[in-house]
Write a protein that binds this DNA or RNA. Structure first.
Lengths: 161, 161
DNA sequence: CCAAACCCGACTATTTTAGTCGGGTTTTTA
DNA sequence: TAAAAACCCGACTAAAATAGTCGGGTTTGG
């Protein structure tokens, strides 16, 4: 599993899609504008996402893209592997380079690391990302209202004098 | 934390060093030969490893490199960050690219992923890699001796006829 | 003093990344 | 039915990163 900005762009774009698909298909032009990713680049990415059945396209005017499944059924791991194709993880896929004692020691290490990364990203869905963000926004506005209350109290107090 | 072949080479080389340092400093020429990594490339890597105080050098004939600490005190994470320098993890280190709602959502994700990877690799030391390998070799030779026993039994049985 | 080793900065070929370009095709709507 | 909005797609390309090489040092044991 490779980790590049391509994968990050794809996750960002999918998130934008997830947040807006309520009112029908979302256009790439819109995503491009909001997320500042070039249209042609998005076309490339969404071509792959469609082939991997993570999104569905609607052609013609009024068209765009929708998630192919519910946001809670799409993991970040899937998005990343869709756009950053395989290219084998541990390099020495049985061939060369692996030598002597050091061979299997590092080999196993990279395999385990890959499993770890993949496991982590498989546990994160678009829905869970959105949810986590909403929690944070909520806490933020709660804090804000507390601050406002305190300010009001202070002003009331001042006026009393 | 970046994961490149440079980091993998460094780990392999350090492992070679850990396994051989018992009889004094290990030369890069030796590591180069055993692990098939070019001498000049090793010099580059060990320059960085030395500056990060993971190895110590002994100059002049009979010289070479030693681990600067015990093998159980050197983690894979340290080796990798020593050779693959920083370059910020989450890209948008506060600047640009991060926009609107999608901003913090993906941002936090990459930060957490980095923490996960770093955590994993910080728990792996040179010593633990060697130990794990030895266990495996041991299990291997046990299996081998069982197979040999069975073969002997079979042959004895044949001779009885 | 010489050879074995480390030391180091500058250079370079290759690959990958990020993205453009120029053409399509499909479908809605006026 | 024509125009326009959208997707579709392969080929190309500039820039950056990677994975090294090269050519000179310096240090030190014998």
């Amino acid at each position: 599993m490779r980790l590049t900005t391509k994968g990050r762009f794809a996750v960002t774009a999918m998130l934008d899609l997830a947040l807006r698909q309520a009112n029908g298909p979302v256009t790439l032009a819109g995503i491009s504008e909001r997320q500042h990713i070039s249209l042609s680049y998005l076309e490339q990415l969404f071509g792959k996402l469609r082939r991997r059945a993570l999104v569905e396209s609607v052609r013609g005017p009024g068209g765009g893209y929708c998630l192919a499944r519910a946001a809670c059924e799409i993991t970040v791991a899937e998005i990343i592997t869709a756009v950053d194709e395989p290219i084998d993880a541990t390099q020495c896929g049985g061939r060369e380079n692996c030598r002597d004692e050091s061979r299997c020691m590092t080999h196993d290490l990279w395999t385990e690391l890959n499993t770890t990364i993949h496991g982590f990203l498989s546990n994160v869905t678009l829905a869970s990302l959105i949810e986590k963000q909403q929690e944070k926004t909520k806490r933020c506005s709660e804090t804000l209202s507390i601050v406002k209350d305190q300010r009001q109290n202070y002003l009331n107090h001042q006026n009393a004098h």
